[in-house]
Amino acid sequence: MPSLRAMNALHPTLFLVLALTAVIALPGCGAMQRHYEAGLILADIRAGEADSRWKRTRPAPERETVEYTGPTGVPRVADLYTPGDEVRSNLVLVHGFTEAGRRDPRLVQFAKTLSRAGFRVLAPEVETLTRMDVSPENIRDVVDAAHWLDARDDGEGVGVAAMSFSVATAVLAALEEDGRPHIGWIVGVGGYYDLVETLTYVTTGYFTEDGERRYQIPRVEGRWVVLLTQLDRVPDADDRRLLDRIARERLADPEAETGPLAERLSPPGRAVYALLTNRDPDRVPDLLAALPDGVRDEIKALNLANRDLSRLQAYLLLVHGRDDDVIPWTQSQALKQAAPRGQAELRLVTGLTHVDVDPGVVGAWRLLRAVNRLLLLRDDPPPTPSSANEP
């Protein structure tokens, strides 16, 4: 049991959560230890690079750069974080949209936090994500990483942790014939199921809950980030340059006047711009139909709503913020419902704005339960069916 002095060093909200945890978890020592670890992990995530009890009491992991090829034969590079003590599980950690890629300071700190918990963490460099480009190619990045990491151990399967738009990539990787035997479970934070509905929310703020249309103010930067992810699929080079300039000017200043730039776009470029500046949810289907073929094909390829998830064998631990202003929480709910029965769980959290954490007491308690479930997956992962048992 932690000392009262040690617990008081934590954030006040987490102190209360840990105090409740200590009472609730008394019947099982292993469960109590996981709950306590979960609280220290949350406090360490909140601390970032600053000192924390987690850093002081757990040996620092070793990081090395590794190069490998997976089933595709494509050369890959990644950072491998090895715990300073026992390796208890293997985890592929996928970075998001960041020019720093696997060396983004936030990802590095998160990887170290997880490695201190006994995870051997592989953080692959996903080149397309470093240039704000989400692509079906990312599926192979995840498959190759899982294949390589699983081969280092006993072949019992690995976990994959992904955030935001990369959650769908992880699920699609687990559906791949050569990914299915290696990906045992997925932790997805702030992901989507139906990409069309997600784009409707990003651009208009409207989403569907229990069959009713609802509105929530979306993050203004969201639409322009989405534009940057699709630039490579716009056929005309001049359009790509103009749209890139529009997106970056609006990201720097949401009130920037970009109308004159938009007037210089060709019809395909103008179709992309029309979707991203639209505010009417009823127009979205027609605007999507008018997009260039490459952009439409990309949306179709990355849309989980088009896939048969009954073949999914990886267990899903989904975490989503009720206050998410980029992807509505109903998307993770829809993903849970589409997964095979009993194979997914959803933890809804207040104070989690997309992937930024600032919970109150209730939110911290729910986050702690989500981290506790991650630690349970570490200690008792679901079995990964062998290829011989695959349908």
Rank of each mutant, 00 (worst) to 15 (best):
L4G: 07
A9N: 12
H11V: 02
L18D: 11
I24Y: 06
A38M: 13
D44V: 12
R46M: 15
W54A: 08
K55H: 07
K55E: 02
K55I: 05
T98E: 01
G101W: 04
D104P: 11
A111P: 05
T113G: 13
T113S: 15
V121A: 09
L122S: 07
E125W: 00
E125C: 06
T128V: 05
M132L: 14
W148G: 01
L149Y: 00
E156P: 03
M163S: 13
V171S: 01
L172D: 02
H182K: 01
G184D: 06
V187M: 04
Y201G: 10
T203D: 00
T229A: 13
V234S: 08
P235T: 03
D244F: 05
R264W: 11
S266P: 07
P268L: 00
G269Y: 04
G269Q: 06
R270M: 11
R270E: 13
A271L: 10
N278V: 01
R283T: 05
P285R: 03
L291N: 04
D293S: 15
L302P: 08
A314P: 01
Y315M: 12
L316M: 01
W329R: 11
W329N: 10
S332N: 00
Q333D: 09
Q337N: 12
A338I: 02
P340Y: 13
Q343A: 09
L348R: 03
D356G: 14
R373T: 08
D380F: 02
